[in-house]
Amino acid sequence: MKSTMPWLTAGLAGLLLGMGLLLSGMANPAKVVGFLDITGFWDPSLALVMGGGLLVASLGFALLRQRRRTLLGEPLNLPTNRTINGRLVGGSVLFGMGWGMTGICPGPGLVLLGAGLDAGLVYVLALLVGMALYSLIERMRHPYH
């Protein structure tokens, strides 16, 4: 029981996130590119998705701040990294290029794969290649880790 609970709660989180992406229209690349295309016919939906998400999440995270333990009794450690550097900005710029090209970020990519679309499969495979490339580069740079 103790080992299956974290799987159950994490599975539920993934499911809820996927349903939110589907309901909000963000699993549809055309809606995402419609938001990013600010000089064309603009679709503000993504801003509302962010607004709804940030409203709920900022309230929720504020309530979690006082807690030291999770529901399952594990230590609750949220990220503390504050570094702003070239890796952060350069990586984000690369991510934005790929996002703008496809209209798909990692979450919706998995939803499209789950829906059985070829585009989802191709995108996720390419995503894994990009991430493996990062892991390989980092392994070569820091061989003793």
Binding site: A10, G20, V56, A57, G60, L64, L78, L110
Partner: peptide, 28 residues
């Protein structure tokens, strides 16, 4: 617009839930 707001709220709720239950950040 309403679907976008509600869907966004669900995404936010999923992130809070994973942090609350598992102590993890829902970063795909």
């Amino acid at each position: 617009a309403i679907a976008a707001l509600l869907g966004g709220g669900m995404i936010g709720a999923a992130a809070v839930w994973l942090a609350w239950a598992n102590g993890r950040i829902a970063g795909i």
